[in-house]
């Protein structure tokens, strides 16, 4: 199994993958490759098809058309091999709440025919604080701890490929950072990681990302390249009262889009936009301390552009 994997340039190859639920097209002929050893992000809104894709890659669903090859194995024909060689963390917490931390770990180890001690070195850095509560029931752990335990269980058989479906949803900023530090460590151990997220700061930490929306891949590239290719004339705007500013900017000539962006608003300027004139008009309307200056966009701006107004 291992040798097969080592000969593959890509850990995951998806070609023309399609999945229908009745009349709903969840995946619409998508194709992309995840290079071996990479940290690959899947970015898209709810309902984009991300979880369906994970279920196909983990052999829990069969595609209606197209193929998915995971670690050199076909997702339909070789489902047994795939199940043995990937680690999967589904979107919802799916450990046994009535089992303790240790019992969960032992349960997953025994499913894969390994001993916890065999691969404990891999999960030891993740476990850290968790190791202090071996007898606490999984259901009684906090969000961040549950997530670490789930990652530990997904890694206990030392998989080549780790499939993580929105692992950090509902997790605070500090714990999220720690989680991504762990992913970086796992990547150094040559584990390929496919991770989906709704946090755009996490997208920036991936080697490559695929933007997915309504069952289609919109773009695949490095975060830097995607941001550079945004191709929008972007401004940041602020004033003392931000909500009236947002409403006012949307009515100004040449404003294609205006949306909140942290402490400022972002304005996508189109034909007929005049920054100086816009500031004058806004100030004359009674808004105080109006500022407008050009900025570079990032993945979040790109996402908003691509997702459009549906």
């Amino acid at each position: 199994m291992k040798s097969l994997m080592e000969n593959q340039e890509n850990a995951i190859e998806v070609k023309g993958l399609t999945k229908l639920y009745g009349k709903t097209v969840a995946l619409d002929g998508i194709s992309f490759d995840v290079p071996r050893g990479g940290l690959f992000g899947l970015i898209g809104p709810d309902g984009a098809g991300k979880s369906t894709l994970y279920r196909i890659l983990t052999t829990l669903l069969r595609p209606d058309a197209g193929t998915a090859v995971v670690g050199g194995f076909d997702s339909v024909r070789d489902y047994r091999q795939i199940r043995a060689s990937v680690g999967y963390m589904p979107e919802r917490f799916s450990l046994y709440p009535d089992l303790t931390v240790n019992e969960n770990l032992q349960f997953f180890a025994s499913l894969f025919g390994v001993r916890v001690a065999d691969n404990y070195d891999l999960i030891a850095p993740i476990f850290g604080q968790l190791a202090r509560f071996p007898d606490r029931k999984a259901g009684a752990l906090s969000g961040g701890m549950k997530q670490k335990l789930a990652l530990g269980c997904a890694l206990i058989h030392r998989p080549h490929i780790l499939l993580l479906d929105e692992p950090t949803t509902g997790v605070d900023a500090v714990s999220r950072s720690e989680f991504w530090d762990m992913l970086a460590t796992l990547k150094e151990k040559s584990i390929t990681i496919l991770v989906s997220t709704s946090y755009m700061d996490e997208a920036q930490r991936c080697d490559r990302i695929a933007l997915i929306d309504r069952g289609k891949i919109l773009d695949v590239n490095t975060p830097a390249k995607l941001s550079a290719d945004l191709g929008e004339n972007l401004y940041a705007a602020s004033a003392t009262d931000m909500y009236p500013l947002l409403l006012a900017l949307r009515t100004m000539p040449g404003v294609k889009r205006c949306y909140t962006f942290g402490a400022t608003l972002h304005v996508v300027a189109g034909a007929g936009f005049d920054a100086r004139k816009t500031v004058d008009v806004l100030a004359a309307s009674g808004l105080r301390d109006v500022r407008l200056f050009p900025v570079k966009g990032d993945i979040e701006d790109l996402f908003i552009k691509l997702a459009g107004d549906e």
Binding site: P45, S198, Y243, T260, F303, E310
Partner: peptide
């Protein structure tokens, strides 16, 4: 309580406009 957990950037922003409106 975490009304926008796990929600994409576009949907989150639309939700916050409801908050702005209610507050105003």
């Amino acid at each position: 309580d975490e009304p926008t957990g796990g929600v994409d950037p576009v949907t989150r922003r639309k939700f916050w406009e409801l908050i702005y409106r209610a507050s105003s």
